[in-house]
Design a protein around this nucleic acid. Structure first.
Lengths: 195, 195
DNA sequence: GAAGATACATAACAAACGTTTGGTACGCGA
DNA sequence: TCGCGTACCAAACGTTTGTTATGTATCTTC
């Protein structure tokens, strides 16, 4: 077994394993031994790359965040509401990978509720997500796709709420919320906004 | 300090303590010792009333559920959409107790993601909640408050998603989502449904 | 090819966990 | 008043946790 590998790449491998254990068993099932076993290694490997479990989790979530943002997104077939539609579809658990990702973030809410630092991170994450929706809402307003008196910030918050709420429902009841229906509900919601 | 107390009442006391620890620290911070300390007792007391931690949690969630349902609800000032509005306001974290309750349920999602039995319970809970929204949606349809071609089941799922999504946002960002704004967003959403 | 840093595995550590055990204090029927 | 069952505490059990210590290959550099 080698030395001189790519240190950062290995850290990313470990984060990936953290991610997968998290998706499979939630924060309650996230132990160093579980992560190590999942990647066929020992806990010594983990401690070699991360000083503590908390540091490991923090890095894994950062990596996850980049992965979330750099995703092959649904192409927005237009400005305004179509863009909002695409942004919402981006967060839906439509594929197995997206399901895993959603599971991790929902799981993360529990950990964040009990830890101030993680709660602050979750707050920022929410702001960033609303920030991604906002341009589309503002464009829609400019294009007259929304009632002229609509408050953009309220529309953003409403859309963000609808999106995450639908994610949770789909996560717990995939039979009732298959990808096709998730997409249909998103379409219906966006149509609702546009009068 | 023994004897002939009301056994069931004591079990409810314990469940209440579980509830409070859960609201404060999430599932990750729920330990028998924490619960015992919270009620100034020993872990022996807990095991005296419950055979295992899992049984304890199960009972606590059942009690919580009854408490959720038997809540002093917002009076529905009308049939159809006003009723839907009231039902949505009922789940919003508008008061400290409602905040605690919402924290517990969000926290519960993590535990449910890693445990099949809890996941099934969460699925049922969701069905029950949609079941509470459905009559209002159907009444709204009957009263012509919704477009005649609207699918009631889709409207229910959309409203349920919006509701829970807003709960999560409000939980993590109470400054941005004070009670007044939560209510305003619910009003805006219901108005959206009614054209 | 010797020296030293790197990359792990293995094993031990104290702490915390859920659970079990043993004991004591009290209420109640006899 | 005796005896028994309930209610509970205190302590200990074995396991699992995150962390630390030690050991051993492998690579890099000279």
């Amino acid at each position: 077994m080698p030395a001189r590998g790519d240190h950062d790449a290995r850290r990313r491998d470990v984060s990936q394993a953290v991610w997968e254990v998290l998706a499979a068993h939630g924060f309650g099932g996230l132990t160093l031994r579980a992560v190590a076993a999942h990647m066929g290694a020992s806990t010594g490997l983990l401690t070699h790359y991360f000083p503590s479990k908390k540091a490991l989790v923090r890095h894994a979530l950062e990596v996850a965040q980049e992965h979330t943002q750099g995703r092959d997104r649904f192409p927005a077939e237009g400005e305004g509401l179509p863009g909002l539609r695409a942004a919402l579809l981006d967060v839906m658990p439509l594929t197995p990978e997206a399901v895993a990702m959603s599971r991790v973030w929902v799981s993360f809410w529990d950990a964040a509720l009990g830890d101030d630092e993680l709660a602050a991170a979750e707050l920022r994450r929410y702001e960033r997500w609303r920030g991604m929706l906002r341009p589309h809402v503002e464009a829609a307003l400019r294009l007259g796709q929304l009632p002229a008196d609509a408050d953009p910030e309220d529309v953003v918050a409403t859309a963000a709420g609808f999106g995450h709420g639908l994610v949770v429902q789909a996560l717990f009841d995939p039979a009732r919320f298959p990808p096709r229906r998730q997409a249909a509900l998103v379409d219906g919601f966006v149509a609702l906004l546009g009068r």
